[in-house]
């Protein structure tokens, strides 16, 4: 079967008479519809995972790259002095947009998940935390560490790089995994449609023989099957995508709290991406059926 403009137009326009030459095959029709729908449903989740991972990698990368923390680990009588000294150092460090010491209430809120709300901070040797917001150009972490070592001996700089990189890398790999899963699903659609088309061609060997006898070209015969399977894949995957989108929409969200599991889904224009799936499934079905048909028809006289 050749793919030229004429063939494509014939496929899109359809031919009521030509469509009738192949008898309706209930089982393979339902099988193709169901499998396409199920695959599209799974592909929606794979896409949701991939897009969410992409967003997460972006957010982690951006947010963590623009922040750093200093811990002031000093005896209680020195803590306030060293905190002030650290803030002085930071105020003269290029690349630091702002820096501030967390209040007792903020530190208590950070520790609350582990120690509860009534933690007496003054009774515990809790280090003072300084939150740093970095400019877009960034700062010289090594230089800052050296200055802090000289001027604020109790200060420990954490630029988040140690744990930011693997997190971003994990999120990016998860995104690749999502796309790979979507591609595998499309591959499975192709394999399934090829098998179903082969079965349909084998089941309709008499039909094909009659059509060849009366002068039907291979393209004509193939089109009758290709159009049918393409439409089934389009309809099945369309239904699968709609159900998949509904399911994603109904997933619980974490509100404003950023989280991975509660962040799986689509945002903005991302909701439009799954709408391409039925078209892609139909294209995959078209190519798979054309391939199966051309192979099968070559064996017939």
């Amino acid at each position: 079967m050749r793919f030229d403009l004429h063939t494509l137009r014939a496929l899109l326009q359809g031919d009521r008479q030509a469509d009738r030459v192949v008898p309706p095959t209930g089982f393979t029709a339902q099988l193709t519809l169901f499998a396409s729908g199920a695959m599209a449903f799974l592909a929606v989740f794979a896409l949701a995972l991939s897009l969410a991972s992409g967003r997460l990698a972006q957010r982690w990368g951006d947010e963590l790259a623009r922040t750093a923390t200093i811990r002031i680990v000093a005896p209680e009588d020195q803590r306030a002095i060293q905190t002030t000294a650290a803030l002085e150092v930071l105020s003269t460090t290029p690349g630091i947009a702002s820096a501030r010491a967390l209040t007792d209430e903020e530190q208590q809120a950070l520790l609350a998940p582990w120690f509860g709300q009534d933690l007496p901070l003054d009774a515990l040797p809790v280090p003072r935390l300084i939150e740093i917001v970095v400019t877009r150009d960034g700062f010289d972490a090594t230089g800052l560490r050296l200055r802090l070592a000289a001027e604020v001996p109790g200060a420990v700089l954490d630029d988040h790089g140690r744990w930011r990189a693997p997190l971003v890398s994990a999120a990016q790999r998860l995104r690749i995994l999502g796309w790979a899963a979507a591609l595998l699903i499309l591959g499975a659609v192709a394999a399934m449609v090829t098998l179903a088309a082969n079965a349909a061609l084998a089941a309709n060997a008499q039909v094909v023989a009659v059509l060849r006898l009366v002068g039907a070209t291979d393209s004509y015969i193939a089109q009758a099957f290709v159009r049918r399977f393409t439409l089934r894949a389009l309809i099945g995957s369309g239904v699968g995508v709609v159900i998949g989108l509904l399911a994603v929409w109904l997933l619980p969200t974490g509100g404003d709290t950023p989280g991975f599991l509660t962040g799986i889904g689509f945002q903005g224009a991302g909701w439009l991406v799954p709408l391409l799936l039925p078209l892609i499934c139909a294209a995959v079905a078209l190519i798979a059926t054309a391939y199966a048909a051309s192979r099968a028809l070559r064996t017939l006289t």
Binding site: P23, V210, G215, A216, T217, Y220
Partner: peptide
């Protein structure tokens, strides 16, 4: 023949294809 089509359609099959 194509058993799912009426006789008239079967006879007209060469025209159809």
């Amino acid at each position: 023949f194509l058993d799912h089509l009426p006789v008239a359609d079967n006879i007209a099959l060469p025209l159809t294809v």
